[in-house]
């Protein structure tokens, strides 16, 4: 199954990853090869098969709604590319 270039644009937007014009053909071909692999699933009859999301069919544990984490924001913000006054800085969003 080969992808249309417009579909690559859509995926690129969904994934927030830009695709360089010089790479687009090669990337489209490689992703199309992966989608060909997916086609192998089509012929299989999966009527009455329940989708499986956890190997042991476990569900998420619940816990009391209490604070379990201590405050690490100063330590964590040291790792930030840009932080000031306890906040992460990004380019201006609102004029």
């Amino acid at each position: 199954m080969s992808l249309e270039k417009s579909e690559v644009d859509t995926i690129s937007r969904l994934a927030a990853i830009s695709v360089d014009a010089t790479e687009v053909d090669q990337l489209t071909a490689k992703i199309s090869n992966v989608l060909d692999l997916f086609q192998r699933m089509e012929a299989v009859d999966t009527t009455n098969v329940e989708p499986m999301s956890h190997p042991l069919d476990q569900v998420q544990r619940l816990r009391e709604d209490v604070v379990t984490e201590t405050d690490h924001h100063k330590q964590y913000q040291k790792l930030a590319p840009a932080a000031e006054k306890g906040m992460y800085l990004v380019p201006q969003v609102i004029d």
């Binding site: 859509t10 995926i11 969904l14 990853i17 992703i31 992966v34 997916f38 699933m41 098969v49 989708p51």
Partner: peptide, 21 residues
């Protein structure tokens, strides 16, 4: 990108749900 595609509207059942089955 492959993952985003498999989860995107219109493909979720054909790919993601099928694969889980």
């Amino acid at each position: 990108m492959v993952g985003a595609y498999a989860l995107s509207a219109g493909y979720y059942d054909a790919y993601y749900l099928k694969a889980q089955k």
